[in-house]
Design a protein around this nucleic acid. Structure first.
Lengths: 255, 255
DNA sequence: GTCTATAAGATGATAGAC
DNA sequence: GTCTATCATCTTATAGAC
């Protein structure tokens, strides 16, 4: 048991996630003592990048260790050397960017709330929360785009990563909903949760960039046009939140 | 080549889809000439039911023919006897309920538009379009619930079934958007497509019944509560459509 | 139609040389 | 750290008896 993957508790407990630069920071995981030939961290990151790409497109079962190794340009055995079992590789991919993702999201809305003060609007709040993943997908390099798709896929089918997803992603979401309550004072918890659920679905489908919209609209709208997607989503969801959280008269929309 | 699956063009051309009763109608596919021992159609439907269940939970690659056979209570070879390759089995599952799904959806909105006349509302229209899948998932038996999840999964990651999805599902959606244009006269095509995209994401995540909302809300809201989900979705999306399709003043929400 | 038996290949994972 | 070689198992799919 001299493998580098063994000492990392990838499975279930509290996990120390590395800073993980946008593409492949020089920061390496685990104990830095062991002698490592120049490209050790590079190889590791290359495997993660390849796995991230393939998992996001074909899912856990649709990818083989051999394919990951081939796309990373390394030998099959190296994948096991670094990550052990296939499942641990998936978890490593999922966790690599999870902390930065959620820290940035939480920071963005807290910063916005602080700066806006009493002028805080629902539109501003939602945009602050939604913009980071859109920006990463657009300008963070291919790795971030793949990761966004992977998160979307995991959110839509949490067979894998569901636990991890909840543990890492829910705190920032809860903070968002707290601030939503401040902007929509009369809203009930239930209403806000269901409104978020609708927004979450829209975000999930969008980050997946499935191309379904391209076909439906015959090329008029493109799934990859994330600038438009973000803009529309903010407007759509803001109105949705307001409608759902408004005090219900009875059932007759008199106006 | 005396197999029943051979003569069916499951792959890509125009496909004649059977009526497919809610659980297992006596109607059988293909030429009815061949002598069939009492339970032939039953076996076939049992295999489809098992595959539908498993595919919806684990995806195409996450399911083996052996698992399908075991859950259906038949031998592995029988699955190949009826459906040939694994991919053809998936297509058969996906197509079994596709026509009824989309016919019912199109009928529902056309019926609503006819009955409502000038009193047609966005809420009424969207509810007419959304209700069928919710009803099936709730009261159509386990098969329909699995199918709804399968459609949701395929919509979110069209690696498999994307072509089929577009061919079968888009016409009804286009009809819906036509009627939306009647209710929101000034709306541009682009706006309506993007608005639909947001609603489509919400619907996809909801039909998947992932349980994510249950955890986030600590049990306050349940993914399986489709009555509430449908109600919230109609209100959320109606407001979203209006906001996105309204003529944009400039950028300042003066009110 | 349904079963047994089996072909032919892919898969996750490991041992051990260098 | 990286490679070669290999195992044991599982996979899809088919042939042929009944």
């Amino acid at each position: 048991m001299t493998r580098p993957h063994a000492p990392e508790p990838v499975s279930d407990d509290a996990i120390a996630v590395p800073p993980a630069g946008a593409v492949s920071g020089p920061a390496r995981r685990g104990r830095p003592s062991k002698a490592r030939s120049a490209g050790a961290g590079v190889t590791r990151e290359a495997i993660l990048d390849a796995a991230e790409d393939l998992f996001s497109k074909h899912g856990f079962y649709g990818v083989t260790i051999r394919e990951v190794a081939r796309e990373a340009g390394v030998d099959t055995a190296l994948v096991h050397y670094y990550f052990g079992a296939k499942r641990a590789l998936f978890d490593s991919v999922f966790l690599r960017r999870a902390e930065i993702w959620n820290n940035e999201r939480a920071d963005a809305i807290n910063r916005y709330a602080r700066d806006a003060g009493d002028a805080m609007t629902l539109e501003g709040l939602l945009e602050a929360f939604l913009r980071p993943p859109f920006q990463w997908s657009l300008k963070g390099g291919p790795g971030w785009k793949h990761y966004c798709a992977l998160v979307a896929q995991t959110n839509a089918n949490p067979t894998f990563g569901g636990e991890t997803m909840a543990r890492y992603f829910d705190p920032a979401i809860r903070r968002l909903l707290e601030l939503v309550h401040e902007v929509l004072p009369g809203a009930s918890d239930t209403d806000v949760y269901w409104a978020w659920h609708n927004l979450s679905g829209a975000l999930t489908l969008t980050l997946g960039e499935t191309g379904r919209l391209d076909r439906l609209s015959d090329g008029l709208c493109r799934s990859g046009d994330l600038e438009s997607a973000c803009d529309y989503m903010v407007r759509f969801a803001s109105a949705g939140f307001r409608a759902v959280c408004a005090p219900r008269p009875d059932t007759a929309p008199t106006t």
